[in-house]
Amino acid sequence: MEKAVVTLDNVSYQYEESDQFALQDVSFDIYEGEWLAIVGHNGSGKSTMAKLLNGLQFPQKGEITVCGLKLNEDTVWKIRALIGMVFQNPDNQFVGTTVQDDVAFGLENHGVERDIMIHRVKDSLEKVKMGQFLNQEPHHLSGGQKQRVAIASVLALRPSIIILDEATSMLDPRGREEVLETVRLLKEEKILTVISITHDLEEAAKADRMIVMNKGQVYCEGTPEEIFSMDEELIRLGLDIPFPVKMGKAFREKGIELSKQYLSEEELVTELWTSYFNK
């Protein structure tokens, strides 16, 4: 039985100036050690959810539990120590003049002792493969490197959960791949539970599980295979279909039968090869 580290129970939230709910009766669990992708159109409530999860806003209705703690004004500081966030814009999250100062900043705020601090800064930068950049100035780094430093800053605080709020959307393809590779490693080493809020469906296809948001509500949840078999329905929801699924569909429409839907190009190539070429 998987252990839920975060539980949302009938959560609703409405911004003061708005006449509509940004989130309405949202309930789901997030399990320990999983990589959960939350997808949805602009305005579907994804980012509101991120704000609620670390107590930047409190829901008007419903309850959020993080690692057994009910989220409220008394527990918010404890919970923020459990959840780290990486935001969209790599240029908005730097305070230090060097990479290591920047990672140390969060630790200083938490009153961590110097010896421990030095060790943790180095250790977390090595985990994101930025150990060679300790004394670099952050603004000389590429977008992907900046986001990896931001992830290291989060890791240094030893949270249980990391939320990536569209953390790859401003990066070029190479930067995006660097960040995703880092997240994959962290997950494999079972360091963190990863919640990634994203528009990038190729990225979501690599997650363990997906939640699709629509107009402030959970539209559906499932494995990437299950979600992407929804096909055209996803396009109606303002989303898209990953490339291998589109390609496979085109083959089938042209009369090239395939045994299933593939989320990876390699698998699709292999099936074509075994069924049609390797005879």
Binding site: G40, N42, Q88, S169, M170, H199, G238, L239, D240
Partner: peptide
């Protein structure tokens, strides 16, 4: 189109 969803 930076930051927009696929439909946008």
């Amino acid at each position: 189109t930076a930051g927009l969803d696929p439909r946008g």
